[in-house]
């Protein structure tokens, strides 16, 4: 097994949507290439064990099962929007993607692909104009991109016609990113979309979307429908990216790295010595080769 970075071992990772678990049934998944078993009993309590029989620390929060393989270095993230009762607070439908989870986070932060991949929804192919925006690192050492604006024909299923959507992105942890976007019916408030990415292997991940949408004009089923529609469009793009791990060398993939958030994200990963799912700078000279495949299925 590839060496896993200590910051990731001591962090929390989502491994299942509770809604998909059945009582008294074992569900198998992978984390850092290691097989783990999730078991829920009839009292809804959950235990998670590794193949070697070791029980790992687990919690249930925001509709997901979270685990930490080591000693937790910090708590699970706090989401104030999840406590607001005029929002649908729901899981979006976890999906397996055959690419590094870091690639998924980077793609999530990028508005440049909207007109091409999400034509007719999050962008229009004939109008790929992007506006300058602000990227910073906060005092809590998170990446924040603000003032992101984009014209969207269908920003959300409850939009009546196109709007200029305002986005704010945050990268909270290496495999966790959040975005806030203008709600079409209450333009002064924002809908909340997070992705918790489970690094199943270096080149395989499971994306767990988490949504806090204002209830105004939209039902739960439609929130999920839209999330899956959009992510279903990203999936083949992500799975066709090569190499499957994310190169951290600033010289690699310069065309992609022209995106400011992407440059920040890669640098931030370097500074935090994140190597799992990445091609670190010292091995970047052979970045065109795929990392030795950890077969997880």
């Amino acid at each position: 097994m590839t060496q896993v970075d200590s910051t990731l071992i001591s962090d929390w990772h989502v491994v299942a949507d509770i809604e998909t678990l059945k009582d008294d049934t074992i569900t198998t998944t992978y984390l850092f290439g290691e097989r783990i078993q999730i078991e829920r009993n009839h009292l809804k309590s959950i235990s998670v064990t590794t193949d070697s029989g070791r029980e790992v620390i687990s919690r249930q929060k925001y509709g997901f099962v979270w685990v930490c393989l080591g000693e937790p270095g910090r708590p699970i993230i706090e989401i104030p929007e999840a406590e607001e009762n005029d929002r649908h607070v729901i899981t979006g439908g976890s999906m397996g993607v055959h690419v590094s989870g870091l690639r998924v986070v980077e793609n999530f932060l990028d508005m440049g692909h909207f007109p091409f991949v999400h034509d007719g929804y999050l962008g229009v192919e004939t109008n790929s104009e992007t506006f300058p925006y602000q990227v910073d690192i906060t005092a809590d050492d998170e990446i924040v991109a603000t003032d992101c604006k984009f014209f969207q024909p269908v920003a959300s299923p409850n939009a009546e016609g196109g709007i200029m959507a305002d986005y704010e992105y945050q990268v909270l942890r290496p495999y966790t990113a959040v975005l806030y976007k203008t709600n079409p019916l209450q333009p002064h408030r924002k809908d909340y979309i997070a992705i918790f990415v489970q690094p199943a292997g270096e080149e395989h991940c499971i994306v767990h979307p988490f949504l806090c949408y204002l209830k105004d004009g939209i039902d739960r089923c439609t929130v999920r429908w839209f999330m899956q529609l959009i992510f279903g469009q990203d999936k083949p793009i992500l799975e066709n990216q090569l190499p499957k791990c994310l190169p951290l060398d600033p010289r690699a993939e310069t065309c992609i790295a022209s995106d400011a958030t992407s440059v920040f994200y890669r640098r931030w990963l370097r500074e935090h010595n994140i190597t799992y799912g990445a091609i670190p700078i010292d091995s970047a000279s052979n970045f065109s080769e795929s990392k030795s495949g950890d077969i997880i299925r």
Partner: peptide, 19 residues
């Protein structure tokens, strides 16, 4: 289309550059 399939014309690998 269905998500995962693109209309004929542009090749998926060309669209990659924006991501």
């Amino acid at each position: 289309v269905i998500p995962g399939i693109f209309a004929a014309g542009p090749d998926i690998n060309c669209e990659n550059t924006g991501s």
